[in-house]
Structure formats: C-alpha cells, structure tokens
Design a protein around this nucleic acid. Structure first.
Length: 804
DNA sequence: AGCACGCCGACT
DNA sequence: GTCGGCGTGCTC
C-alpha cells in the first residue's frame, strides 16, 4: 500500500475524482483512509482527503504527497461512505460532501507568498523589487498585488530570483492556556514548604494546593481560586517548585452556566404507549423510522430524553437535531440538565473555534449526546443508538446550497447503517412524512393529548377587512386590543407574533404605487431603519430613500409593511403602561441576547413579548395566556407550493405557546383571508383535516408527496442566452424521462434577476425516474465548459424546499 | 478553482 | 517586433 487516492480541495467538475499520490517511506502506516493530507497539485499545494490506499495506479508519473494534516482519520469509514452517498444523492462534488461533514474550522486556508531565492544577490535586483521586499525575504502575495509590480516580479520568478511559495494552513488553532503544575514529588514539595521563610504564607498556601492536586491547573483559575497574585506563582516557578506549560483547553460556550439536573419524569399513558416501540427498537438494534406526531405540549421532549437514556445505558450514542438551536436555549437546558457533560451542543451561534471544540469532544468520545442544528447530523459517532429530529417539518433541515441535503434523509441513511431507530417528532408533521407514515414507510406514533390534559387554547379568527370597513385602521383588531388590556389588568403575559416574511418594509409611493426596486435584481429594496437606507437582500445594493417619487414626483413616498419596530411604537402609543420586549433580528444579533430577553420575559419584567418567527417555537412559560398573530396571511401568498402548509404549521406552533400550564390560553389570529383553509383549520387546530385538504391540492397539482420534484436553475448575464439554455435543458431532460414525468419550463424564476444575472428554471415532477440522475449529470457535463468560465451557472436541486 | 500555455490586437 | 488580452486544457 504505497499509493494513496486523494480527493483534492478543488470543487470543480474536472477535479471531482481521486488523484493518486505516492506515500513517502517515512509516512507508510501513518497515511490511512480518512485523514487529510497536503498534496502538490499542479504548481500549488492543496488539502485533500485520502479515500483509499492501493498498490498500483493507472497513472505513471505519480508525485509524492507532502504531509499528513491529521494523525488519526478525521473521517471514519462510515462517513467516507456517507460522503459518496451524499454525492450521488445531491449531485454535489465529493470534496463538498466531505467538507460539509466537518466543522468549518477544518477547511484549509491557503497562503501564497513570494520569497527571494537564497543565492540571489539583492543588489542586482531593480529598485522597485528591493523596495517591495524592504530587507525582508518573504512578502505575501496580497502585498505584492497592492504594490502593483506583478509583471516585474513575474520576470524574476521566471529567471529564478524569486520563488512562489504555496502554503496550506489550518483555519483555527487549538486554544491553549498557561497551566501550572509541580514537577516535584509530594515529599519534595513538603520539604520545599518547610524551607520557605515564615512570612511566605501565600506561597505555602499554593504548595498546600499542589500537595492535594497533582493535575496541572489553569493559571487563571489558580489565581482566582487561591486569591494570590501572579507574582506569588512566579516566585515559586523561579525556585523550581512549580512549572508552567501551555495546554490545550476547550472553548466551552456553556462554561459559566450551571444546569440544574433533572430526573426522568413519570410518563403519561400516551407517552408510555409511544415510547415502548422506540425502546424496543433500541433493544433489538433494529432500524425503524418513527414519526412521533404529538400536539404541542404533549411531552415529546421527555420521550426523547428517556429514549436517549436507554441508548446511553447500552453504551451507545445519540444525535438530536433541533431547528436553529440557539433559538431554543430551553431545549439545551433540558438536555444538559438530564445528561450533564455528556452533551455537546452544535449550533450556528457558536464561533468557529467553539464549534470545532464541541466537535472534537464528539470525535474523542468524551460526549455521548449531541444536540445541534442541521449539520450535527454528521457528528462523528461510531456507535449510534438513536437519531432524533425534533420539529421534523422545519424547512431549515434542508441545506439550500451545495450539497443540498436534507438532514432527515441523512438521518435515515445513517440509522440504517447503525441499525438504530430514527424518531421524527412534530405537532404538525410535513406532508411528506405524514404520507409516508400513512403508507407504513414510517411507523406512526401519536400523542393526541396534552400532558395534564389541558385543553388546547381556544382560537378566534378576526377578519381584518371587516375591521377596516368599520373604520379601524390600526393593526390591532378591537377584540385583540380588548383581550390585551384584560391580560394587562390580570398581570398575565401576552405573546404577539408578527410574520414579517412575505413583505418586509418596502418603500412605496402612496400616490402612484411605485415601489423602489433594486437596479440589479428584480426585487423591491427593503427599508432599514438603523441607517435610514434601503438595501437589497440579494446583492447588498444600498440606496437613499428618495424625497420625491421617481415616477410621479409626489412627495408622499414612504416605507410600508409593518415591522416589529412599528408595532412596538404603536403599542407604546395606545398602551403606554405595557412593558414590551421586542425580539427580532435586530435585538437578538448579539450573542446570548436571545436568552437574556427570554429570561427577562420569564421573570415577569415585561407584559408583552413581541417578535417574529423566532418566538414561534419552544417558548414554554406558565403565565402566557394570550397569543396574538397580527397578520396570518403574509406568507400565504408566496410563490411556493408549500405556503399553505407553512402557514398552517406556523399558526399551530404559535397557538401552542398559550396556556401550557394551569391557566387557560387564548389565541387571536388576525387575517385578511379568514376563509382560507390553512387559516381556518389552524384555528380549529385540526391537523388531520388540514392534511386531507392539502393532500388533495397536492394531488391535483402533482406536487410532493405525490410527485418528487427537482429544480434546475440557469443564470446568465444575457436574457436570451438564459432562456435558450433553459429551453434546451428542458427539452433534453424531458426527452430522457418516461411519459409519466413532467418537465416544466423554461419559466422565469420567482426572482427573475439577481445581481444583474437573469434566472430561468425548469421544474421536473416525477414518480420514479431511475435515470434522472444520469440525465442531469450528462447535462451538467455538456455545459461544463461554459459553467467553468463563469458565464453560465446551472444549479440542480433535488427535492428543493425553496423554489426561487 | 488556479495556473500555464498559446494565439491574436495595440503599442514602446 | 513585444506586451498583454483572455480562451483552452490540465492538475496524480
């Protein structure tokens, strides 16, 4: 085994295959599949993943690999194979598949430098070059570019006076801190203590500490714990009694936090019924996929916790996926509370270094449970006993850029190799999953009752058109206002939910209806209050708000759309006595602010919690008795076949926030389309009826779960080119599919232009097309040249969640 | 993705 | 004649 097959870190069609390298003698045995290596690739050096070892290669002139970047494989055999599965499933590059499974900190960083050759005499070089190097031997490529003498330098490279050095570096360093320990034995220490002068009390105290504690301790901790100055330690170090060394520590985002430990709760009858088959499947080491359908407040989390408990007893590991976990600190509390430091947490709120450290705890088998967002599904456990996906219907489990994977699919794939169960939990399962449960692909487990049998909150739907007709032009209906005032009087808490998506504040002329659009993208600009500017969310273009309408010159040009800030202002006007906490992107961007705001609300420092999507989930406070949805229909009119489903799910989730404890809850939903079935049925909290209704719509329109869909998006600077390529692709793919498949296109994308590039798409609906993957690959191959040069972009999304 | 190689236009 | 534009093809 002297040759290594390596997937290099070059995400391109032509390099999406293994390259072979000779393993230098001194590295034989060290280089194994799954470790990262630095390899020469053309004139430069790149990172690569060793995928296999072999004794022969078809290629004759093999180069030697340069060095390993790991001592032990960073991807185990299972993950290497999972990478191949991902590549096939999502049509992504192998390198992208491997990188997505690892924390971003492990992605290589490349540096390019210029170095004066050893034998060159500096005096002979031109003044400009001498000036560029200013008595140094090495300058960075960026510096050279800034100086603008590239052509001169290029010449020197050709004649050998200057070398180009390529370096591959790690992105994040392991965090190291000064630690103190004693190199002496206890007897020696005791003797040293005797010899210290009487007045060296502090030093003696420190020695006492080390007489008890042998392990090295962080210098900082020692100082604060003993209440001594750093000079005290320094003195001991100088005498040779203590030593210092740099030692690796984990960045622990929850370091300062204490989690009150909890015991398993007695289960309700419902819970007992659903947990039995899950536990059985763990016992039997049998792969089964469960859909745990339990209404809000039915106690799904306790099911997760007790299932994991059995997994841990069996010496196995568990993955728990939670949507954007930083948004539910309560969830972290529950897992850390039950399983303590056996839990690692992975979510987007952590820094790259923190994520890396949590990941290494998993890799080193220091933890048994990971709670995390989407990418935690790749946690490098080797002995999985269960995978749990909470809020299974959440769209954030689908990654929107390459590799466009769905965590649910990955979970099912991994669980089948580990022979363990998958539990998909939701109060409002996705139609896909519920349909699979109906067909028996998943085992359905239902919990139709809330714990303690509280009633689901009563829901009242308010027709805002009616309000308008009767002269109420405010954003609060009279009913809602009345109820708010009532709760304020009773000192109970209120959650107001604003679904801002759909139309956030845009700038519009009141006289002629002109809306300010982005000049590069066919989409309206969003008004940002912080800097009084309009910004495009797709290309970042910024512009001043005009004083007069560019169309009709009217002065009545204003921003529209009710943002949370606007609601807050209006609340302050009509209910000045109410204390409001606002939660949106602006108020929660700072680390930990999310949790702080929620804690404040929980402790009763405010009457009203006003927020966007982020408050729809996980809130579980006893004093909330009223939930108001200010406008239910904003997302209903998005060009997306799932918009009804999303609306229903969101409204149900929000409603579930009310009355989870002794006090009864009430929900008010304001809408302009009260007759829409997703709003009506959310009001009745009737998932089953909604499911039936929506399935009919999906069947008629040939959408999932009746059909699979794949989306091809083509973009190019020229409209004609974009259309003609999409046309050809549609025709080609259509010709290669069976008669049952439907190939729609070319149609303009819902956002027809982004960053001055036109966008057209082809939507494929199909039931069974085993050759579709091949056809798509051939198509991508055919356009390879044009896409490589950057003029043309073609993206393929198998099972897209966003059709834009 | 980079980078080298190569083949045509506008210049000292 | 040469400098440099970016099209084409290769990287073990």
């Amino acid at each position: 085994m002297t040759i290594a097959s390596v997937i290099v870190d070059v995400p391109a069609k032509q390099t999406d295959r293994p390259f072979d390298y000779l393993i230098p003698n001194h590295l034989t045995g060290i280089i194994t599949p799954g470790i990262r290596v630095v390899v020469p690739f053309g004139p430069r050096k790149v990172q690569g993943f060793v995928t296999a070892l072999k004794t022969e290669s078809d290629f004759e002139k093999l180069k030697e690999l340069i060095e390993p970047m790991d001592l032990t494989p960073i991807l185990n055999q299972e993950l290497l194979q999972l990478g191949e599965w991902l590549t096939k499933e999502t049509l992504c590059y192998k390198i992208s598949a491997y990188q997505v499974m690892l924390p971003a900190a492990l992605k290589a960083k490349y540096e390019k430098k210029l170095k004066l050759s050893d034998e060159v005499s500096v005096e002979k070089l031109s003044d400009e070059i001498q000036a560029a190097f200013e008595n140094r031997l090495i300058i960075s490529w960026e510096e050279a570019v800034k100086l603008g003498c590239l052509s001169l330098l290029q010449k020197e490279v050709v004649n050998g006076s200057i070398e180009i050095i390529y370096e591959v570096k790690e992105r994040v360093k392991k965090k190291k801190l000064k630690h103190v320990f004693s190199p002496l034995t206890k007897d020696q220490l005791a003797m040293e203590k005797e010899q210290l002068p009487v007045q060296a009390a502090k030093q003696k105290a420190v020695i006492d500490f080390f007489l008890q504690e042998e392990a090295p301790i962080e210098l900082r901790k020692l100082l604060s714990e003993m209440g001594v100055a750093s000079s005290t330690i320094k003195g001991l170090v100088q005498k040779g009694i203590l030593s210092q060394k740099e030692m690796e520590v984990y960045r622990d985002p929850y370091e300062e936090r204490r989690f009150t430990s909890t015991e398993p709760l007695p289960l309700t009858e419902d819970q007992q019924k659903v947990i039995t088959p899950i536990l059985a499947s763990i016992e039997e080491k049998r792969n089964r996929n469960f859909l745990l359908y339990g209404v809000t407040g039915s106690g799904k989390t306790e099911i997760y916790l007790q299932s994991i408990q059995l997994v841990l007893q069996k010496g196995k590991e568990a993955i728990v996926l939670v949507p954007e976990i930083s948004l539910t600190p309560q969830m972290v509390k529950r897992f850390k509370g039950r399983f303590g430091d056996q839990v690692a947490v992975l979510h987007s709120g952590l820094s790259a270094g923190e994520k890396y450290d949590e990941w290494r705890k998993i890799q080193r088998k220091e933890v048994k449970v990971v709670v995390g967002a989407r990418s935690a599904i790749f946690a490098p456990f080797e002995n999985l006993g269960i995978i749990i996906i909470d809020e299974e219907h959440e769209t954030s489990y689908k990654q929107e850029d390459s590799p466009r994977y769905h965590a649910r699919d990955v979970a099912i794939e991994r669980a089948s190799t580990h022979h363990c169960p998958v539990v998909l939990g939701s109060a409002t399962p996705s139609l896909e999953s519920f349909a699979r449960a109906q067909k028996g692909v998943y085992s359905l487990l239902s919990m139709p009752n809330r714990m303690n049998n509280q009633a689901l909150p009563g829901v009242e739907i308010i027709d805002m058109r009616e309000e308008l007709r009767e002269g109420n032009r405010s954003m609060f209906s009279r009913v809602l206002l009345e109820k708010i005032e009532d709760r304020l009087k009773k000192k109970e808490q209120i959650v107001l939910f604003l679904n801002k998506r759909g139309h956030s504040s845009f700038v519009m002329c009141r006289d002629c209806g002109f809306v300010v659009n982005c000049p590069n993208c066919d989409i309206s600009l969003t008004y940002h209050r912080a800097n009084q500017q309009m910004k495009c969310h797709y290309c970042g273009h910024e512009a001043q708000v005009p004083n007069n309408c560019p169309e009709c010159n009217s002065e009545h040009i204003r921003y529209f759309g009710t943002g949370t800030q606007k609601v807050e202002e209006e609340l302050a006007k009509i209910l000045p006595e109410a204390k409001v906490i606002r939660m949106d992107v602006d108020t929660t961007s700072r680390k930990g602010s999310h949790e702080k705001l929620l804690d404040q609300f929980q402790e009763g420092h405010a009457d009203i919690l006003l927020g966007t999507q982020m408050i729809a989930k996980g809130l579980d406070f006893p004093n909330i008795t009223l939930v108001g949805v200010l406008s239910a229909d904003t997302m209903l009119h998005l060009p997306d076949f799932r918009s009804s489903e999303k609306t229903f799910q969101l409204l149900t989730q929000v409603s579930g926030r009310a009355g989870r404890h002794e006090k009864e809850g009430e929900v008010v939903i304001q809408t302009y389309t009260p007759q829409h079935y997703s709003i009506e049925l959310a009001g009745e909290q009737d998932y089953d009826k909604f499911y039936e209704r929506e399935m009919m719509v999906r069947k008629i329109h040939k959408y999932p779960p009746f059909y699979y869909i794949s989306l091809i998006t083509v973009s190019h600077e020229e409209l004609l080119k974009t259309v003609s390529v999409t046309e050809k692709i549609t025709a080609y793919i259509g010709s290669r599919l069976s008669k049952e498949a439907i190939c729609l296109g070319p149609v303009a994308s819902p956002i027809p232009r982004i960053n001055n590039r036109y966008r057209y798409q082809c939507l494929i609906k199909y039931k069974r097309e085993p050759d579709l993957g091949l056809a798509l690959k051939k198509m991508l191959d055919y356009y390879q040249k044009e896409t490589a040069s950057g003029g043309l972009q073609i993206s393929v999304d198998v099972n897209p969640y966003i059709l834009m």
